[in-house]
Every structure is written in C-alpha cells, then in structure tokens.
Amino acid sequence: MPESVTVHEGVTYAERESGELALDLYRPEVEDPPLVVYVHGGGWVAETRANIPDPERYAAEWGCAIASVSYRLQEVPDGADVEVDPSNPTPRGAFPDHFVDVKAAIRWLRAHADDYGYDATDVAVWGSSAGGHLALLAGVVDDVTDLGDAFADELTKTVAPDASGAVQAVVSWYGVSDFTAVDDEGGPVSLLFGGTREERPERYAQASPVTHVTPESPPTLLMHGREDEMVAVEQSRRFYDALDDAGVNALRYELHDLNHVWVEDLADIESERVAMDLLAAEPTHAQSVYEATHVPEGGTPTPLLADLPPAGPDAIRRFLERTVG
C-alpha cells in the first residue's frame, strides 16, 4: 500500500452564476495512478462532495486518484414537499445542470491530469443513489450535448470544452437508470424534471441512462440492495439487462437483506461516508452476483472479475484494475 496520499481540497473547476463549483482530489504516491471520479448522493437536492466513503484510504488501497466533485443541486421552491438543508453552501440550479457539471468536472480533470500527476487516459466514475444515476448517465452519454432534444437549450460546454468527457468504466450504488418506471408525483424526481412522467415524458426518457445504452457503452459494476425502499432494485436490473442486450460486459451484485445506503432500516441511514463499512461488514451479507461476459468473434472470455469476491472495496478495486488500471 502506498505510504501517503496527497490531498487537494476545494479546487475550483467551474464558475456558475449561482457560485463556484469545486472538487477534492486524493492522489496516492504512485506513478501515474488512474482516475476515479466520485459523485455523491442526496436525492439531487442535498449533501455535498464531503459525502464520500473514506477517500484517502481507498485512494491508497486501490492505487487510484479519487476526485469527489460538487455539482449544482436542484433548486427547491417554497412549499415543495422536499426537505433541504439551508446551510448547504452548494450552488443550485435545475436539471440538467447536475449532469452538465459532472461532465464539466470530468473534462477539467482530464485537462489538468499533468498538473496533478494522475493518468486520465481512462477514467472511471463512481456514484451513489442520485450520484449513481449521474454516474450511469455520464457513462453512456459521452458528450454532454448528446443528452437529447428535451434538454438541448440547456446543454453547454464552458469548462475545458476541448477535453473529452467520456468515461471508460462505471460503478453505481443503487442508482436510478429508468425514470419512465418511477412514480414520484410531488417528490424529488418530479421536481427534477418540472412535472410528472405524464407531463414531461421526453425529459423522463432522455434523463434515463437505459435510453442511451449502446454497444460502445463502458463496462459497469452495479451494487443494489434487494430491500431498497427508495430506489427499487429493478432499476439496476433494467440497466444490467440493457448492457447485456447491447453486448457490454457488466456485473450486478444484489444484497439480499439490505436497504438504501446499505442499512436494514431506512431510519438507520447516517451518511454515505460510512456506507462502505456497512457494505463490507462481517459476516458477509447474503448476496447474488450476475455477470455478463461477451466474447468477440474468435476471442476468449475475459470476465470483469475472475473469482467474484463479495460486494465491497475489494470487488471495486479489482473491477477498476480490470477496466482503468
């Protein structure tokens, strides 16, 4: 394990009308480590980039530079049935600002790789919950301007526009993949798209990662609790099936008795910062693993993980080594 990790906190990567957007970068003392971009959860309306599981530890153990990025959170109008923390300093906007910012951070990080000493040739993106949705979307939509006609007037590249925003691997914890299967009238999803699924069908479809899956989509590692009451496990199943149908390698872990953020009861949710500890707790949680490995004509099988370790940091490490390491 590397002896130390260099931390760069509060690095500004974008200036928006509502304020500055920053990232925290954790770089292990190894030569040219690959880059992992972390996107926090919080229902698109809450939390900050500090909501990341032990980044210094995993930067060291995985030998990866990890960047935890801020993105504009959804503006919540007075009277909306969605709670927000008024002390959260993160700038706010309206979807697709969240996606625009994640892509901007990826481009900025790729453009500044030499400045900070990591290798951004291949980039992995990892997200949880709302961040899982944004990570999946960043994986299957290479250029921010390709999200779709429903958002065309709101998609611009002002940050490192000449750099690529494409990613080569995705890790999603309990992220939404198909909004057309979500009923959320009055909740954060209808707030996100400015109306119900029936009122804004194009936005619901084009913001859904499953809509954009192609044979060129990156390999993906999905982890989801079967008892998730906030984002149904069916969301990860739909995305996995779409990748499999397109001939893209994928892995899906289902944790049998776990809810959102790897707790057994929603009342026990604390923070994503302790989520990895819960996921990797002993004894190992009962789980099922599904693997889609596609073999090129005349080739040999190259699975994403050779021996399918339990869900947790070791599985993520091995996936990253296989895809971007």
Rank of each mutant, 00 (worst) to 15 (best):
V37K: 11
L137P: 00
E31F: 08
N88G: 06
L320A: 08
A104S: 15
G165T: 08
G139P: 01
L147Q: 07
T121R: 13
Y26A: 13
S68T: 08
I269H: 01
A181R: 12
R252D: 08
L305D: 04
T220I: 08
D268V: 08
G195Q: 09
T196K: 03
A130Y: 05
P313Y: 13
A166F: 04
D143W: 14
A160M: 02
H40Y: 08
T156H: 15
S217M: 10
K157Q: 15
D162S: 06
A166N: 02
Y253Q: 05
G10R: 11
P89A: 03
Y116C: 07
L35V: 01
P301K: 06
R317V: 11
S164P: 06
E56K: 11
V170L: 00
A306Y: 08
A169N: 02
G186K: 12
P2K: 05
V210Q: 00
A246G: 09
E15C: 12
V5S: 05
A306G: 07
A14D: 10
L191T: 01
D268K: 13
G132T: 03
L266F: 10
F239N: 11
V141D: 03
F193P: 06
A67H: 02
A281L: 05
G312V: 04
G175C: 15
R16S: 14
L136I: 12
A113V: 05
A246L: 13
G298Q: 02
A242T: 05
W126P: 06
Q74H: 05
R197D: 03
L147D: 09
R107Q: 00
S70A: 15
A163L: 09
L21G: 00
V144T: 00
S164E: 10
A138P: 14
H260D: 01
G247I: 03
A46M: 09
T220Y: 12
E185Y: 04
Q206K: 13
R226A: 09
P77M: 13
P34L: 10
A59N: 10
G175Q: 11
T284Q: 07
R27G: 05
L255H: 01
P28M: 12
V167S: 06
S172I: 08
R317T: 12
F179E: 00
A181E: 09
